[in-house]
Simulated assay, not measured.
Amino acid sequence: MIQKDGEIHEDVTHRIKTGWLKWRNASRVLCDSKIPLKLKGKFYRTAIRPALLYDSKCWAVKYQHEQKTSVAEMRMLRWMCGHIRKDKIRNKVIRNKIGVVPIEEKVRDTRLRWFGHVRRRPKDAPVRRVDEIEQLIKKRSRG
């Protein structure tokens, strides 16, 4: 979902809402204190995070978008552990308990993977031709 001004705010909020929808569907498992945190983390990585990151390889991410997704993820992770922000437990500690890396790193990984796929395409592929046209346009003389 790209807006008229070329921004992706709506797409990011839609992904976050989708992540929360998946969270609500799995809350019985994720909020159960009898289930180990590592298993909850594994379930989170396989069920909820893909819903949050779907199609993020095409995003032109700004700091605001990273911040929004990071806040949503940390709220989910804190809730999984049974903590609130007033407990003043650092994000790194919670991530280590659950075994989850920051979502910003996963977004960067998916974007780099997509970039690698584009670079390995044949020279006559439409994506590569557009890339070559952009390079030709950028080569201008001074002044």
Rank of each mutant, 00 (worst) to 15 (best):
Q67H: 12
V61W: 11
Y54D: 10
I48V: 14
L53P: 05
Y54F: 12
A60T: 14
K57A: 10
K40I: 10
A51I: 08
A72H: 08
K68C: 02
A51M: 11
A72N: 07
L39M: 09
V71N: 02
T69K: 04
P50Q: 10
L53D: 07
A60S: 13
L39G: 00
M74I: 03
V71I: 11
K34M: 03
Y44C: 06
A60R: 13
V71T: 14
E66R: 08
A72I: 01
F43W: 06
H65V: 00
D32I: 00
E73P: 07
P50A: 07
K40T: 10
P50F: 08
K34A: 04
Y63R: 10
S33R: 14
L37H: 03
C58D: 03
R24Y: 12
R45D: 13
S33A: 09
M74S: 04
A47D: 03
D55A: 15
V71P: 01
K34S: 10
K42E: 11
K38D: 03
V61F: 12
K68P: 00
K62M: 05
L39A: 11
G41H: 04
A51H: 13
Q64G: 09
R45V: 06
I35V: 15
F43D: 00
L52N: 09
V29Q: 00
L52F: 15
V61H: 03
V71R: 09
V71L: 06
D55G: 15
A47C: 14
A51Q: 07
P36D: 10
V29L: 13
R49T: 13
P50Y: 07
N25G: 05
R49E: 14
V61M: 15
K68L: 11
Y54M: 09
P50R: 12
I48L: 15
A60K: 14
Y63C: 01
T69M: 15
L39F: 08
K40Y: 03
L39W: 02
S33M: 04
S33D: 12
Y63V: 04
A47H: 10
